[in-house]
Simulated scan of single mutants.
Amino acid sequence: MSIRIPYDTVFSTVKQAFLQMGLSEEQAQQCAGIHTESSLEGIESHGLNRVPRFAEYVQKGWVDLNARPELVGAKGAVENYDGHLGIGVLNATFCMDRAIALAKEHGIGCVALKNTTHWMRGGSYAWQAAQAGFIGISWTNTESCMPMWGSKEPGVGNNPFCIAIPRKNGPIVLDMAMSQYAYGKLGVYRLAGKQLPFPGGFDKDGNLTSDPGAIEASGRILPTGYWKGSGMAIALDLAAAAMANGRTGADLDREARGSCTGCCQIFLAYDPYLFGDEESIQARWDDRVAAADATAPDREGGHVTCPGERTAATRARNMAEGIVVDEQIWQQILDLAAGKTDVKDISSACVLDNMTEEKKQ
């Protein structure tokens, strides 16, 4: 069951939960901001729902609260950092800041990060670039949680990819996993007792299904675009590992420590006005978005939008009416804020963690 909680209450409670986990005042402030903003904008699967799992990983020692990104190499507009298994949100924010700084100097900036932890909502860092006036691109590799096309067992990560266009009349921001639905989104639908809008994977008997629990149980999420999604996933994995000189998804599988622990991430920022003036490029973007949005909807009363356009409306509604939170998740966050530490994340049924445990045995 979902409830609505005022923004300030959510932020202060999440921040207190992070302080109880041992984060500093500054760390807790920044992490609470990312998690709360994600849920405020309708991405609860990677916002508040991830707080209990983060607590679990801290308890297991899979996240080092004292670690900071270390520069290990730099060539022109490119830098490489070792995240030392620090807080993924903070590592990612730092690296996109560095990419933006490099882009201000060179026109384009690229930062590769290895040995980091889950960045939560990947789109946060694309938005970060767009809000600074730059085109932002970022992606991550993960452990295997999705079958390659033609397989019945996980063989590649769903490796989220994000791109943001800094349009002044509303940024266009794409944040997508290489699976039809990320596991976090499956958890959101399962907790709400809902079926997926479209088939998102296979059940244990190999039947395509919209039942999120059945897909979590089988571990057979559907690649976006079938073979295209799994093909993109393996390509993104290889590119990230090479650029960061870090682990591939197969390395993460062998280490078997849980979602994204030790992964590689890439952050790109690009000045959109290198070869054109701001006014004409913004006008061109507005014209293109307007043309796409004006196409005929597929059903009566439907409305076509480009990715990111509905974010402002979602944010405004949730700010006015309260952030949507699953009641069970909220209770776990309240327990964490009160100093109770024996809390397990129920938001994703932890198919990935279950597979990890099986590999250890």
Rank of each mutant, 00 (worst) to 15 (best):
K152F: 04
K152C: 03
E153W: 01
E153V: 02
E153S: 03
P154Y: 00
V156G: 02
V156R: 02
G157W: 13
G157L: 14
G157T: 05
G157S: 05
N158I: 03
N158V: 03
N158L: 05
N158K: 01
N158C: 14
N159F: 12
N159T: 04
N159Q: 08
P160V: 09
F161D: 04
C162I: 12
C162S: 15
C162H: 12
I163P: 08
I163S: 10
I163N: 12
A164W: 09
A164T: 06
A164K: 09
A164N: 07
I165S: 04
I165G: 03
P166C: 07
P166K: 11
P166T: 06
R167F: 07
K168V: 03
K168I: 06
K168W: 01
K168P: 00
K168T: 05
K168C: 02
K168Y: 01
N169T: 14
G170L: 13
G170D: 04
G170S: 14
P171N: 10
P171F: 09
I172P: 00
I172V: 15
I172D: 01
I172N: 04
V173F: 03
V173T: 07
V173C: 11
L174W: 05
L174T: 04
L174A: 15
L174F: 11
D175N: 08
D175H: 11
A177V: 06
A177H: 07
A177R: 07
M178F: 11
M178N: 14
M178Y: 11
S179H: 06
S179G: 08
Q180I: 09
Q180W: 07
Q180P: 04
Q180C: 10
Q180T: 10
Y181E: 06
A182W: 05
A182L: 13
A182H: 11
A182I: 08
Y183Q: 10
Y183M: 09
Y183K: 13
Y183N: 15
G184W: 07
G184Q: 12
K185W: 09
K185H: 13
L186Y: 14
L186M: 12
L186Q: 05
G187S: 10
G187F: 06
G187Q: 05
V188Q: 12
V188T: 14
Y189G: 00
Y189K: 02
R190C: 01
R190S: 04
R190K: 08
L191R: 08
L191N: 02
A192H: 00
A192Q: 07
A192S: 13
G193R: 01
G193E: 00
G193H: 00
G193N: 01
G193Y: 00
K194D: 04
K194H: 12
Q195F: 06
Q195E: 13
Q195M: 11
Q195R: 13
L196S: 02
L196T: 03
P197L: 10
P197T: 08
P197M: 08
F198C: 05
F198L: 13
F198I: 13
F198T: 07
F198H: 15
P199S: 11
G200W: 10
G200V: 06
G200Y: 10
G200M: 06
G201W: 05
G201F: 02
F202M: 09
F202N: 00
D203V: 03
D203T: 02
K204T: 14
K204D: 07
K204G: 00
D205T: 03
G206H: 01
G206P: 01
